[in-house]
Design a protein around this nucleic acid. Structure first.
Lengths: 254, 254
DNA sequence: CGTCATTGTGTATAATTTACGGTTTCATTG
DNA sequence: CAATGAAACCGTAAATTATACACAATGACG
């Protein structure tokens, strides 16, 4: 089956089975090597990158659709996802320029709506558990440092900017650390995450005192050895206490 | 023109000119007589209430559509509005029950989508400046106390609950007081607003000290006389300083 | 004129934030 | 093997903010 055949079949199925004119764009955040990263797709036979996304089947909820799309790209059945903005400008991007950059062999099929409104979701994933997977329209699915993104298709740079701003604002009442850190981590590593989200540096001594005083971490008997200096302790989140802290407003980082 | 003719024309125009399958629901918050209120519509010839809402023209942005809908119901050209959630469950409410309660003389026209996904907006208005206006499908457009709502159509009770929760969370970084209080108000009145949004009581002495210490209020030379006790001072918001306080995170009420 | 209750200004204490110091400890280097 | 450098952790001190509560001023009412 040629690529054009695949595209045709895809457009026909979307037109037939999906909610018309509404799509999803997913900003998948991971944290690795002291950097906040997003998962991007490179379109087939091009050097153009964009966010993962998709459409909503007529019989599924919007949230379920987002979860399905994210499972397809990350391999994860359960992850934390949250709506953050409906991108519904009458003109979101230059369509001619975009078609050119996409090098699409055909345009959309019949009964395709004139415009697509997109619900933006952000997802928080444990980087170590993700298996990035391309779809049939892409060559690559890779992590990119949010501070060093490539040129992006559509209005996806704007979408990422809004997602990042939302993440920052929600640091005190969404389980961001809980969902982005690996199972075991050190306090300096956690501090790097907070600094990446807040986009400012924090005093290591005050951060250590503050985060351990919140009672949301459990110190393990292991240390992370192999570094050139003192081996830091490893920690895990106490999920029950983390949720309690979110509810009673104990987190104060913003 | 009979009501049925009006409905027919309306459905035809929506089908022809509006984005299919996506609507808006607006939670319009006002503050009056120490109570947080929402604006509701009573459907024609029924005793059933619902939120104002509408559809998006194919050539306008979603935010522009929301502003247009709100202008039609409130008479205000400029007001503060914010997206808060996309309500996209596959089944949002019992359609048979709803049609019955609506006493609609006809169902939707041809080419009407099987389901409608709705973007929820909240708006903050100065209660004293609103002129509630019905549309052709309603008999009344009235303010209701959020703590004393009537039975609501569709999933509109849920939508209001989510809006209220969002308002509460955004108290520190959205200009909520600025947009809900009238031009001149007293500090006890402002405290009642915060208590209504936070759903808890605040110490008057600490609130007074805290809010005046933020430098976002200007004390006027007038007092509110006529009360049974000491006449309180009148204040206005210093809008520039209010915006500054929102940006640098000086507001700490949540 | 006395009473009641709101408003506003205030003090005291506790909690948190911010700034910074010093010890421990680990790999690397000579 | 000792010296070195720096991260990690535990700590103190001062400043700021939050919380609890007191009391004087003041206005309508009886």
């Amino acid at each position: 089956m040629t690529y054009i055949d695949q595209l045709k079949a895809y457009y026909e199925r979307v037109t037939e089975e999906c909610v018309s004119g509404l799509s999803l764009d997913c900003v998948i955040f991971g944290f690795h090597d002291t950097r906040l990263k997003v998962l991007l797709l490179k379109w087939k036979d091009t050097n153009e990158w964009s966010l993962p996304g998709g459409f909503i089947y007529k019989t599924e909820s919007v949230d379920t659709a987002a979860g399905r799309v994210l499972r397809e790209r990350t391999g994860l059945d359960q992850l934390f996802l949250q709506q953050f903005h409906l991108f519904g400008d009458a003109v979101r991007y230059d369509t001619d320029d975009t078609w050119q950059r996409l090098k699409m062999p055909m345009k959309y099929g019949v009964n395709w709506p004139d415009r697509t409104i997109s619900m933006g979701y952000y997802a928080l994933v444990d980087y170590t558990k993700v298996t990035p997977a391309v779809d049939f329209m892409s060559d690559e699915c890779c992590w990119w440092d949010v501070a060093d993104l490539p040129s992006l298709l559509y209005d996806h740079r704007h979408i990422i900017d809004v997602a990042l701003k939302t993440l920052r604002l929600q640091l005190n009442w969404q389980p961001i650390g809980l969902n982005l850190m690996p199972e075991k981590f050190t306090i300096p590593e956690l501090q790097r995450l907070y600094e990446a989200v807040l986009d400012r540096s924090l005093d290591a001594r005050n951060f250590h005192k503050k985060i351990t005083g919140l009672n949301i971490l459990t110190r393990l008997d292991e240390r992370r050895t192999g570094g050139a200096h003192k081996s830091p302790y490893l920690y895990q989140f106490d999920e029950v206490n983390y949720q309690k802290a979110l509810i009673n407003g104990s987190l104060n980082f913003v």
